[in-house]
Amino acid sequence: MTDEPLLRVSALSKFYGSRVGCENVTFDLWPGEVLAVVGESGSGKTTLLNCLSTRLLPSSGTASYRMRDGQWRELYRMSEAERRFLMRTDWGFVHQNPADGLRMTVSAGANVGERLMAVGDRHYGRIRATAVDWLSRVEIDEDRIDDEPRAFSGGMRQRLQIARNLVTGPRLVFMDEPTGGLDVSVQARLLDLLRGLVTDLGLAAIVVTHDLAVARLLSQRMMVMKDGRVVESGLTDRVLDDPRAPYTQLLVSSILQV
């Protein structure tokens, strides 16, 4: 494993007029590392995710990404074409609502295959075989390959969205509340699946969640945000078992015990 990070974020801030979206966020992310960003609604975690994934341009600060060829590139200086290419090859983005990340009116197979076709694969048989493989990896029956996601349950749609993102072997995946809006049992299954895929593929991931249990299960590192700022960061189990910041202590103490 290389000793260089994959992503370097330095003093990233986003202001909406005088309102703070996120302020002065700095961290490095290494290959294979899963970073959870936790905080309540309005804490700035989604703004941060959108800035990092270049869906939103920050007001100040830099983020550099190490490309597959080892070159460091500043994300906000890349052309839109380069960023979009990165987005559909080396990156993934898993939306909370699968309908935002899927094409609901084309088949599951085509949803998975789209990225392959986007990077120039022109062999139907190979694209379909890859789609079959990925559907099985996310536990969707092969005989659903020609069904549209409209006919899928929420959990299946989310798994399909994951397959669609991972098919090009990305190195960095952004996830925005990937288990939000799902039943608890469906959540558990999805988390297992994600955990396994992240480990098997050596993915780096930035997972935004308000659910500390999700953070504990998926991530090694964690950042706690409040009012746009990072109030505490560190190893996930350290932050959760020995929270230091007042806000983190409040968050951890607010977890319902079952």
Partner: peptide, 22 residues
Amino acid sequence: RKMHALEEYGLMHVKLYEDIAR
């Protein structure tokens, strides 16, 4: 328009893929 500008035409093959699948 953006897809034309950036030559992102994977979607066109999605349509042909759907044809073959169906």
